[in-house]
């Protein structure tokens, strides 16, 4: 693919074992390239919410949404527009010594990251934000030595009144 674009999709799925396998197996079988996938509980015990970041083109996006919609356990699927609230959490362990500690703390302040653990040779920082902000933060830390890094993957919610569960089939399909 020449210029893969990133698309974010939210899905409400049945809160049952095996649902993640079904979704993941679908991606593998159809050859969809997934950048991140996060699953979490929702306000309703019967559903989990998946946020998927897909790399591809509009054909793949349309096919993936239609194929996912065919899974019985997928109750609702929605394309997340760029203006929606997209957030990701990152924990990063940076090599630290007496000399670099202040510099690392300064960078953290600029990005509003929290220091969650400090030891003589390492600092763990926590940062929440848009994926691009997290990328920027990592770039700044690279010269000091990133020892370990964990990101949750994107989770997203649309702005304003509209909700993913608004439409009627959300309840009908249960």
């Amino acid at each position: 693919m020449e210029n893969p674009t990133k698309y974010t999709i939210s899905a409400l799925v049945a809160n049952k074992s095996g649902v993640l396998t079904r979704v993941a197996a679908l991606f593998a079988r159809r050859g969809y390239n997934i950048e991140s996938l996060s699953v979490c509980a929702t306000e309703n015990d019967e559903f989990s919410r998946m946020t998927i970041v897909l790399k591809g083109d509009e054909y793949i996006l349309a096919q993936m949404m239609k194929q996912m919609d065919k899974l019985i356990d997928v109750k609702k699927i929605k394309y997340v527009e760029d203006e929606a609230v997209l957030r990701e959490l990152m924990l990063v362990k940076v090599r630290t010594n007496a000399e670099t500690r202040t510099q690392i703390f300064e960078i953290s302040q600029i990005f509003r990251a929290n220091v969650v653990d400090a030891s003589p040779e390492a600092t763990i920082l926590e940062l929440t934000g848009k994926p691009s902000k997290l990328d920027g933060f990592v770039t700044m830390l690279l010269p000091y030595g990133v020892m370990e890094l964990a990101r949750t993957g994107v989770t997203a919610i649309s702005r304003g009144n509209a909700c993913i569960g608004d439409e009627t089939d959300y309840k009908e399909k249960v």
């Binding site: 095996g18 396998t21 079904r22 197996a25 679908l26 079988r29 065919k70 899974l71 019985i72 356990d73």
Partner: peptide, 11 residues
């Protein structure tokens, strides 16, 4: 068998 037949069943 549910794992095996996942991609070849509707559900």
């Amino acid at each position: 068998i549910t794992g095996i037949t996942m991609p070849i069943t509707k559900h």
